[in-house]
Structure formats: C-alpha cells, structure tokens
Design a binder for these strands. Structure first.
Length: 156
DNA sequence: GCCAACGTTGGC
DNA sequence: GCCAACGTTGGC
C-alpha cells in the first residue's frame, strides 16, 4: 500500500472542488512532467493513500486525504484539442501522459496541516515535497505517512 | 514580483 | 550527446 502527496493549485483545482464532485471522485489529470508521469503510470496503485497539498496560495498545506479509486490510465486530455492539456505529439496508440482517479476520504479545509507546521518536524524534512520541490506527485514513506496522519488527527 | 532550482528544448 | 537558453515551479 503506497502513500503519496499530490500538489494542486487551488485556483485551478482544489480539494473543495473534489468535495463537491459526484461521489467525491475526480480524475487527477493534466500532469505533464515525466517523473510524475512514471509514478502515475507504474507505481500509484488502487487504494493507495494520497495527501492533497495546496500550493501557490496564501496558506500552502495539506487540505485533504484521498485514496486512489482507479490506478494509472492514459490521460484523456492529451487527445482533446479543446483541452489546455492537449498534446499534439501524443498518439492513442502511444499515450504520453497518465492520470488516476481519486476519491476523497477526509476533507481538511477547516483544519489543514499547514506548511509551517510540517516544517517544524525534523522527521518530515526529508519529505519529497522539500527534496523535489518541482514534482507534483511525490512518494511518502510509511513513517512520514504515520506522522502526517497523527498530526492531522490531532488537529481534528 | 522575485529568485533559486531544475526541467525542457533545440542547434550543433 | 552536449550544453546554453529558456520556461516552469512554488515559497516568500
């Protein structure tokens, strides 16, 4: 069972948007970075746990927890000329980009785990969030998962 | 808006 | 395949 942290800009897509969608399920599409693509295609599995992180906003932090409802499959947006995520070089026979479906488990909008608190914990300084700040899909170790979960439970 | 880090592109 | 130029990311 894997654990992950996915970043999103709430102006583009937020945990609140996910909470309002049908069955609280969404397609996590539009990832256009090869390392993140490889994770989505090869490593993110059904029922894996995903911490949802809001970035590029006044108070960056974890605003929700989801699980993987459907593991990696070709991102439909790459084939859609009307989509901002359209990729003319992607072929249906050779997709370039992958997505997963997420289902929301815990909405933390009113009690997020904010970045300054995450940074206070020395055990979390090795988070992929900090080691690979450009990556929007990063793995979380089991120890990190447990600590993040405890911190989130304590504030809820 | 700034800036550091780092990914991508394209000429050679 | 190298590498300079350029683009993107994300905290502040």
């Amino acid at each position: 069972m894997g654990n992950w942290l996915f970043k999103t800009e709430p102006n583009v897509y937020s945990v609140g948007d996910l909470a309002r969608s049908t069955n609280q399920i969404c397609t996590w599409d539009g990832i256009r970075n090869y390392q993140a693509r490889n994770f989505l295609r090869d490593s993110v599995k059904h029922y894996d746990r995903v911490f949802l992180y809001h970035c590029q906003c006044p108070q960056p932090g974890i605003y929700g927890i989801a699980h993987v409802h459907r593991a990696g499959y070709p991102d439909p947006a790459q084939f859609d000329p009307a989509s901002a995520y359209f990729d003319p070089k992607a072929l249906s026979t050779a997709p370039r980009w992958y997505c997963v479906d997420l289902q929301l488990q815990h909405l933390l909008i009113s009690t997020p785990l904010l970045l300054p608190e995450i940074k206070q914990h020395s055990e979390l300084t090795q988070l992929g969030l900090f080691k690979q700040p450009r990556l929007s899909v990063v793995p979380i170790t089991e120890n990190e998962n447990e600590l993040l979960t405890t911190l989130i439970q304590n504030s809820n």
